[in-house]
Amino acid sequence: MNKLKVLIADDDANVCEILSLYLKENHYDVVEANNGQDAINLFKTTNPDIILLDIMMPDIDGYEVCKEIRKTATVPIIMLTAKDEEFDKILGLEIGADDYVTKPFSPREVIARIKAIFRRMPAPPEVLELNNDKYEFENFTVYVKQREVQVGGKKLFFRPKEFDLLLYLIRNPNIVHTRDQLLEKVWGYDFVGDIRTVDVHVKRIRDEFAAHNIDAIHTVWGVGYQFQPNGKG
């Protein structure tokens, strides 16, 4: 079995060295970048399975690197940040990060986050059976096995966890789900990120739907979120 490849992007040589050591001991392949531009270049040439991305880097910061990668790929990204303000964490999630770790951190914690992300990821598309298992609504259709959402035959862009969240809400319509419930059901008991992760993913789904005038996920203030279908499932 091929080893998973991790791209570490951090301008702190000590951080890179420590993470690289622990990752290799845990049977990961590692490539390293010390600035934002190198991170983008290595992402394009080495095709990593996951990226550990520092926010504060010279040349191009982690936010910009994340946005650039998200233009073409859904590879998992864990942000490494010395900042602990809520704004910085949420901003990272909003632009496409899957999780974050605040410095100083234990390398074991980082490896635990990596393992948690891969446990939550769906099976690769090539091993999924394609069939007509779908949910059809007035203005969009969800193909479950293909993990696709289409509007008028056009495929919408959803990252893996966004699709998982949408599908869970679709399968449990007209029920108000709290953020804690959604974290438990969609992310799992081992998720160690911020509860606002749910808000960020809901926002991404809504933004993608909004371009097609779809309003399916509703906020119940002070409680959580509810999917209200307008077609048939």
Rank of each mutant, 00 (worst) to 15 (best):
Asp99Val: 14
Pro76Trp: 10
Ile175Arg: 13
Phe157Asp: 15
Glu68Ala: 12
Arg113Met: 02
Val65Arg: 02
Ile111Met: 06
Asp61Thr: 02
Asp98Ile: 02
Arg171Ser: 13
Glu162Thr: 11
Met1Trp: 05
Lys24Trp: 07
Phe87Val: 09
Leu80Ser: 09
Pro104Met: 03
Ala9Gly: 08
Val202Phe: 07
Asp194Lys: 15
Arg179Gln: 15
Val202Asp: 07
Asp12Glu: 14
Val15Tyr: 06
Asp99Ile: 12
Asp164Val: 00
Leu182Lys: 02
Phe105Glu: 07
Ala116Ile: 05
Ser20Met: 03
Trp221Ala: 04
Arg204Trp: 01
Asp84Phe: 08
Glu32His: 03
Ile111Gly: 05
Phe158Val: 05
Phe137Cys: 06
Thr46Gly: 02
Gly233Arg: 14
Gly224Lys: 00
Lys154Thr: 12
Ile77Ser: 14
Ala211Val: 06
Asp84Ala: 14
Pro173Ile: 01
Pro104His: 06
Leu23Ala: 02
Leu165Val: 06
Ala116Cys: 12
Phe105Arg: 07
Asp164Cys: 00
Asn34Tyr: 06
Asp98Tyr: 05
Thr74Val: 05
Gly62Ser: 01
Val15Trp: 06
Ala33Ile: 10
Lys145His: 01
Leu7Ile: 06
Asp10Ser: 06
Gly36Arg: 00
Gln146Arg: 04
Lys185Leu: 01
Gly224His: 02
Leu156Gln: 03
Val75Pro: 14
